[in-house]
């Protein structure tokens, strides 16, 4: 079988710690969290993490709505309006957080929120 070649090089344009434009505010009445991204979301956004500023008292649900509003790549998982196509898996400070139950969880300044797209993994054999 002749297969056309395509070279894949990983991590092409991932800037670590890219800030969300005009939103980061780590002081005063707001709070800032670090969103850790996983493929294919990280590749779509061209970043492996984002710093996101939120109002005091913000919840995980607020964070997801903010991301969906600002970044179209999140919309399949959490559209700005209505129900998500799929729930992503969340990891807050190293611990899994179930959705939708975890949407009301409050966020603290400095929290790290991993967003893992719904993938199954495996290999055919």
């Amino acid at each position: 079988m002749v297969v056309p070649e395509r070279t894949v090089r990983g991590g092409a344009s991932m800037e670590k710690g890219r800030s969300e434009p005009g939103r980061a505010s780590a002081s005063g009445e707001g709070l800032a969290v670090t969103v850790e991204l996983f493929a294919p979301l990280s590749d779509r956004l061209g970043a492996s993490s984002l710093e996101v500023g939120l109002a005091a008292g913000a919840t995980v649900g607020d964070l997801l709505r903010r991301l969906a509003a600002n970044y179209p790549a999140f919309r399949p998982f959490w559209p700005a309006i209505g129900e998500p196509a799929y729930y992503p898996f969340l990891v807050v400070n190293g611990s899994s957080l179930s959705l939708p139950a975890g949407l009301d969880r409050g966020l603290k300044h400095g929290d790290r929120v991993g967003i893992v797209p719904p993938i199954a993994g495996g290999s055919r054999r």
Partner: peptide, 18 residues
Amino acid sequence: PNLQLFKLYGTPGAIRAY
């Protein structure tokens, strides 16, 4: 999302998430 991931990195693309 699965197929986007596999296209980008092959099946080991799931390792970080796991």
